[in-house]
């Protein structure tokens, strides 16, 4: 696969923790998006459910937003679905 020299140099400076943070953000956004797709729920309806604007919800789904724990929990409860799971803990502890 062809890669770009300047991008490769920058890649060499990306800390593993930052990569993990970005992967998690994308994974969370994808999880929320998949749940909405399964329910055939529009972003507009989801925004209404959460009491937020469509712009804000769009930002959540972009994978570039740093969602707070509080917001993640509100989304989980509103959708009745786990968004994140903690390694090593049974499900009941997460959605008690």
């Amino acid at each position: 696969m062809k890669t770009n020299k300047i991008m490769d140099e920058i890649r060499g400076t990306i800390p593993p923790a930052l990569k993990m943070q970005m992967e998690l953000s994308v994974a969370i956004a994808n999880r929320i998006y998949d749940i909405l797709e399964e329910r055939d729920m529009s972003q507009k309806d989801f925004a209404r459910l959460m009491g937020k604007t469509e712009t804000e919800v769009c930002r959540w789904l972009s994978g570039t937003h740093n969602l707070t724990m509080a917001t993640l929990c509100k989304i989980s409860v509103a959708l009745g679905e786990d968004i994140i799971m903690i390694a090593g803990q049974p499900k009941e502890c997460v959605m008690a």
Binding site: M7, I10, R11, T13, I14, L18, K19, M22, E23, V26, G63, T64
Partner: peptide, 14 residues
């Protein structure tokens, strides 16, 4: 803005 650029490059990788 090294951190922003790193994130942007990794975003493109994703």
């Amino acid at each position: 803005y090294p951190n922003d650029v790193r994130q942007l490059v990794y975003r493109l990788d994703i």
